[in-house]
Simulated assay, not measured.
Amino acid sequence: MDFHITDDATDPAIARIGDELTAFNRADVGPSDRRAIAVLLRDGDAVTAGLSGYTAWGWLYTQWLWIDEAHRGKGIAGQLLVAAEAEALHRGCHGAYIDTFSPVALRTYRKAGYEIFGVLNDFPQGRTRSFLMKALRA
């Protein structure tokens, strides 16, 4: 047997890894009911802010949250989170999690009720990556 290293995300072997892990997890803990989620703020055809991630196993994971520089500081991040959390509740989720290495985003998430449950120092170098969670309630 040989180890092979690749940076080709389209390699069919990578899809197999995901498929096999999904099958293992389904057998181990049940189906994830993984569904994509996005909350977009549009100005005409232009997206000026947005959040994307997914829900699975009763949790909302916010993978990306971005706001155009001209619209920052107006509370839009909190509004995006509220909208995503409401949809997650509708989907039966009981918790939400997010991570960041931005001190500004960290303050925003904490203001929105998220609590730090873990950190990685120097991720990236000179920053702390914080992992946050929040219980969702109707």
Rank of each mutant, 00 (worst) to 15 (best):
G50P: 03
L136H: 08
D43M: 14
E20K: 04
A112D: 11
R42A: 15
L65Q: 07
P103W: 15
M133H: 15
M1Q: 11
G126R: 04
G53A: 01
A27M: 06
A77G: 15
R35C: 03
L89W: 14
W59Y: 07
E115G: 09
Q125A: 13
Y109T: 13
A15G: 14
A56D: 01
R91I: 07
A23Y: 00
H71G: 09
W64D: 12
I76R: 05
N25Y: 03
D122A: 14
A112E: 11
T55D: 04
K134G: 06
R91G: 06
F3K: 07
R91K: 13
A36F: 11
A27T: 04
S102W: 06
A83Y: 08
S32H: 00
G75V: 05
M1D: 07
Q125L: 15
L80P: 04
T22A: 01
Y61R: 00
W64V: 09
D122K: 11
L136E: 03
S130E: 08
T6L: 02
Q125P: 11
A77K: 15
F3C: 08
M1V: 12
H4W: 11
P12Y: 08
R16W: 06
I14S: 04
H90M: 12
A138D: 09
A83L: 10
A56Y: 01
A13E: 12
R110H: 08
G73Q: 02
A112Y: 04
H71T: 13
K74T: 07
A36I: 03
G53W: 00
G78V: 05
A46T: 07
K74V: 07
A15L: 15
L81G: 02
Y97K: 01
V47A: 15
D11G: 14
V104F: 12
M1C: 11
G58L: 12
V104Y: 11
F131C: 03
W59R: 09
T22N: 00
Y61L: 03
P31W: 03
Q79H: 14
W66A: 04
T128N: 11
I5W: 07
L106S: 12
E87G: 08
G126Y: 02
A84M: 02
A135K: 08
L21W: 12
V104S: 10
F131P: 01
E20I: 11
R129F: 05
D45M: 11
D122L: 09
E20L: 10
S32I: 00
W64M: 12
I17Y: 05
G75A: 09
L81R: 03
A84D: 08
I116N: 06
G50D: 07
M1K: 06
D122P: 04
L120I: 10
I67S: 07
L51G: 01
W66N: 05
A13K: 14
Y54D: 02
T62D: 00
G73H: 01
